[in-house]
Design a protein around this nucleic acid. Structure first.
Lengths: 243, 243
DNA sequence: TAGTGGTCTAGACCACACT
DNA sequence: GTGTGGTCTAGACCACTAG
């Protein structure tokens, strides 16, 4: 059915996807437009229905179109901005700036979880926790102040770890299987502790990233990363169907 | 082949996906583990290869596994935190707080693009631009200060729009077809203009969201949204395969 | 009730990477 | 070579829903 010699290097469904996506992005098919039925595209591209279906389902997952039974598929209007945010590893980030990276454990304490700890970890039982403070440097300058709680019920081996070679973040990523995470991003004025650690004025604008990480069974860790506001920005991209 | 009565409401590939994903999330299949070949899963689940393939490709797109020809599919280690950030419409956000929403156009100017404008819009030619400042209120309090540039070459009808009913953001979303956007998120101290607009102290910590929006042909708009730091946070989620 | 998308099959050939 | 995943087909039946 298809041309014997591949006309270009893309697969058939990739070409169809690019075609349809192009029409949507260009405005040729504006929001609300009903795109051709599967059986129509099957004829138009001279391919099987599965191939068309795969393309349209990809576009639907990417949020470009909506599929309705008995009605057809429709171009959606660009929905309330949702974007993919890349939160990179601190070491990677520093090295991307062309600076030398190192970190220091500033303080370390083991205790039964206090009420604040439980709140931060989203826990109820008063489990043992490890409370770490850590400074990350870019060259000679402090780059980020890390305050971390680790649930020792979930990761007991953290108690015996010195975190000399690897910072607590990468150490946990290596050790703990797949997780889900929730991030909160705020601007705050530096509190006295953080200001002293980062060598900035109290109240200076800082970017605070809080991350709560859960494993399959229970919460694993909570971390507050504070960056001086003038030295850091997050970048997020919004684009249809990353393929 | 399949049971005549659907054992639960999920489709076959959904059940397979949940099964495989569960094993990965639980750590039963740790990072590096080689998951069964397609033909093995075909036998195990008593289904066709396409069904298995669909599942594994979904997991690969979600970043949970990596597929290598001739070698098989392998569980990845949780990669550098990347998360889906939801940047909601300001009106929606305010109303979610249970507060009344309104906005005001504070200033408006039309001009040929200055060097700063071109830089912000990612443009080269000195096109006409519309420069808007806008205040968004939650109840009686200022909630967000918006500074927006609109490329009048891309959206000429903006020049004739009063933005009385709809704020510039929603107005553009309705009018312009699909776009890509780039967001930058920083913490900054409030500059005098913004501080006055928001009724906060100069230098107070604020969350700054910059968004640059491009259409198929050319840049469309650039916006700086400044939120008082104590009244705003962004939430992002990281979880494997949203299906 | 008719027509859409949702799902699934049992094949097939190909490209690629490891040997 | 050889075996993996990548792609594709030509059907089929089902579930949902608009008219």
């Amino acid at each position: 059915m298809e041309a014997l010699v591949n006309p270009d290097r893309r697969s058939l469904h990739q070409r169809i996807l690019d075609d349809v996506q192009g029409r949507i992005l260009s405005g040729e098919w504006p929001p609300g437009h009903r795109i051709p039925f599967e059986h129509e595209m099957t004829a138009q591209y001279d391919c099987s229905r599965m191939t068309v279906s795969k393309v349209l389902n990809q576009l639907a997952r990417a949020g470009l179109i909506e599929r309705r039974r008995r009605s057809g598929s429709f171009v959606l209007r660009p929905h309330s901005q949702s974007a993919v945010l890349e939160i990179r590893d601190i070491m990677t980030e520093v090295q991307a700036l062309g600076l030398a990276y190192r970190f220091e454990i500033v303080s370390r304490a083991k205790r039964r979880a206090t009420r604040t700890d439980l709140d931060r970890l989203h826990l109820e039982a008063k489990v043992p926790v490890l409370d770490l403070a850590c400074l990350h440097f870019a060259g000679k300058e402090p780059f980020c102040h890390e305050e971390r709680l680790i649930n020792l019920d979930a990761v007991p081996e953290a108690d015996a770890e010195a975190f000399a070679e690897r910072a607590p973040g990468p150490w946990l990523v290596e050790r703990v299987p797949w997780t889900t995470a929730e991030h909160r991003i705020q601007a705050i004025g530096a509190n006295p502790l953080t200001a002293a650690a980062l060598g900035i004025a109290e109240g200076a604008a800082c970017l605070l990233i809080e991350r709560r990480t859960k494993g399959a069974e229970q919460p694993i860790t909570h971390v507050r990363l504070t960056y001086p506001g003038d030295g850091h920005e997050l970048v997020a991209h919004f684009a249809p169907s990353r393929n």
